[in-house]
Design a protein around this nucleic acid. Structure first.
Length: 566
RNA sequence: GCGCCCGUAGCUCAGUGGAUAGAGCGCUACCCUGCGGAGGUAGAGGCCAGUGGUUCGAAUCCACUCGGGCGUACCA
């Protein structure tokens, strides 16, 4: 029996074959057959799949779409996976999965386990998702949480699509802001010893810097103090930065996000000096020029609106230059086939020139995907709060996760497409936490688990259950929804759009609730999953097993927990 | 000024050029007291910001207008 993930190519083949048969039979003119579009009709009465091929062929075939549809449908061979096709005006061919096929898929899902809907799209390819990468000059804010949820889910989806995937955090520990950070930290540290010093004008005013200074005092006493007016000790920067990175790492861990690599910007300038290598390539290609005391990348030659400075007149490289070297490292040194940078929309001015630089380095710019998510607006008490790292009124990711919980935080962030600005109403999220969609989905998983637990208590072994006994609409409807995960993974991975996951999870949970409630609606208790009818019980238990696998899988892809009880 | 993102139900948002535009929350009326009620069914609620194109067909593509956000550094 056909596997669910092969159904689309299977249908394409059937239809293409039918078109050719119709042509051979002289019922259609001999024209080129376009690739077969397979759609999922919105209205279930139109079946599980549909093709609009007749509509697209109408012009070249010089025939009415409906006539083409009828000719094609007539030549579709009988197939065990689908029922006889139906033709609908103005020229659709609708196809419905057969009960036998759906029943068999239950067995398939159980056999394959969580990987049942995985797709071999990226087999043998290496992908990297770099996300959050906030400057380690302060705690993560709410917007970073959106990037974390998106990046982590995207990495999971790519893994499901067969890519060997790494999650990476780029630590900006080398720029100007780093110096400002340590100057601020040293000022706060000195203040703890009674010195009358101010933090720098462009410094970081947040209380967390005072706390960080206190930690330093606790760990090092006055060991980091220098005579008044002198520069701070060399290692202060590293100590402070390490502490901040540790803090960020902990915040992300609290959200359930773990990275494979924490990549230091500084490392680009040490050891093998990747930075020098990357710049040498640009220089060889004649794309560097000196002007006004600075070194410029002549990106306007490559279609950019202007040239960009890579090394300032003070000799320090720009952030842009680091990023060029960083992407050289990603593509050339580490050989990723697919590189995804997840950035906040405030970085979008940087997108085009980074792609240009990537191309100039000899890497394939098509392999670089920069996923921008629009900024998060925070609402508290009906008031809109702008997110700003330097502003006093920032709300940290930690605070949000503490209030809302990691599961709801992730689910909520994932529901919105990255391109949409979103309001995060904290009051609402807290107040209605019991009504948050995430609980609806998790509750479905808990119910599934409890049914299986109950069956286990009663010693029922479902392994031999006869799935052909499952013929009711709610039973097969649940199977249909389970199988749709194949589409969701494929599309999420190819379009890099993970916001489909929570929407799908809700639809799957709804299908299960409908299935479960269909039985309790009836006073006849023999219609539950576990009944006196041993055969039917075992068959339904298999369906429950499969549904649990599917639901746990989509929750797992989102990084949301799948509780067995709540 | 120029560039990018976005305008869809009261609110928050989905919607690969296809059939009667959907979900959650909120609202109304029912069902169910369960293998777990954090459940089910039904209903009200829409000039898909506007105008003009392309197409057999547009919420979707193109142009312009209006409204919101962001960017346009020898910051990151």
């Amino acid at each position: 029996m056909l596997d669910a993930r092969d159904i689309r190519p299977h249908l394409e083949g059937l239809i293409e074959g039918a078109v050719r048969s119709a042509i051979q039979a002289g019922e259609l003119p001999d024209v080129a057959v376009p690739s077969v579009p397979i759609e999922r009709p919105k209205d279930p009465s139109h079946g599980d799949f549909a093709t609009t091929l007749p509509l697209r062929m109408a012009r070249s075939a010089m025939k009415k779409p409906l006539e083409i549809a009828e000719a094609v449908a007539k030549h579709l061979p009988a197939d065990e996976a689908i029922e006889a096709p139906e033709v609908a005006p103005p020229g659709f061919i609708n196809m419905r999965l057969s009960d036998v096929f759906l029943q068999q898929q239950i067995v398939r899902v159980i056999e394959h386990g969580p990987a049942f809907a995985d797709m071999p799209l990226g087999t043998g390819k290496k992908a990297q998702v770099e996300f959050v990468s906030a400057n380690p000059t302060g705690p993560l804010h709410v917007g970073n949480g959106r990037g974390a949820a998106i990046g982590d889910a995207l990495a999971a989806v790519l893994e499901a699509a067969g890519y060997e995937t790494e999650r990476e955090y780029y630590v900006n520990d080398a720029g100007t802001q780093t110096d400002t950070f340590s100057e601020t930290l040293y000022a706060r540290y000195q203040q703890l010893f009674g010195r009358d010093v101010d933090i720098p004008k462009d410094g970081y005013p947040g209380d967390y810097m005072i706390e960080l200074a206190q930690t330093l005092k606790k760990d090092h006493g006055d060991g980091l103090l220098r005579p008044e007016g002198e520069r701070p000790p060399e290692n202060l920067n590293q100590i402070g930065m390490d502490a901040m990175v540790g803090h960020i790492r902990e915040s992300l861990r609290k959200l359930g996000v773990e990275y494979n690599v924490w990549f230091s910007e500084r490392s680009l300038y040490a050891g093998e000096k990747v930075f020098d290598t990357a710049m040498a390539i640009l220089k060889e290609n004649g794309q560097l020029t000196e002007r006004e005391g600075a070194l410029w990348f002549t990106s306007s030659d490559l279609g950019e609106s202007k040239d960009n400075v890579v090394v300032r007149s003070n000799g320090k490289p720009t952030y842009y230059a680091s990023d060029i070297a960083y992407h050289y490292d990603k593509f050339v040194r580490r050989g990723f086939d697919l590189v995804i940078d997840v950035w906040g929309a405030d970085h979008h001015g940087h997108v085009s020139r980074l792609k240009t630089a990537t191309q100039a380095l000899g890497a394939n710019p098509e392999a670089l995907h920069i996923l921008l998510y629009q900024l998060v607006t925070l609402k508290r008490g009906g008031e809109t709060v702008r997110l700003s790292k330097r502003g006093g009124d920032l709300i940290t990711l930690d605070e949000l996760v503490d209030e809302v919980g990691p599961d709801a935080t992730r689910f909520f962030f994932l529901m919105r497409s990255p391109g949409a600005q979103m309001d995060f109403d904290i009051d609402l999220a807290v107040k209605q936490s019991n009504e948050n969609p995430v609980y609806y989905v998790q509750y479905a998983h808990a119910r599934l688990s409890q049914i299986l637990a109950r069956a286990a208590e009663q010693g029922i072994d479902a392994s031999g259950g006869d799935v052909s006994l499952l013929t009711q609409p709610h039973e097969l409807g649940l199977v249909r929804e389970m199988l749709r995960l194949v589409d969701v993974i494929e599309q999420s991975a190819t379009e890099l759009e993970v916001h489909q996951l929570p929407h799908y999870a809700m639809a799957l949970a709804t299908a299960f609730h409908a299935f479960n409630d269909a039985f309790r609606q009836q006073s006849d208790s023999s219609l539950k999953v576990i009944t006196d009818d041993e055969d039917l019980t075992r068959a339904r238990l298999r369906l429950v097993q499969a549904a649990q696998i599917a639901l746990a899988r989509v929750l797992g892809l989102m990084g949301v927990s799948a509780p067995e009880r709540m």
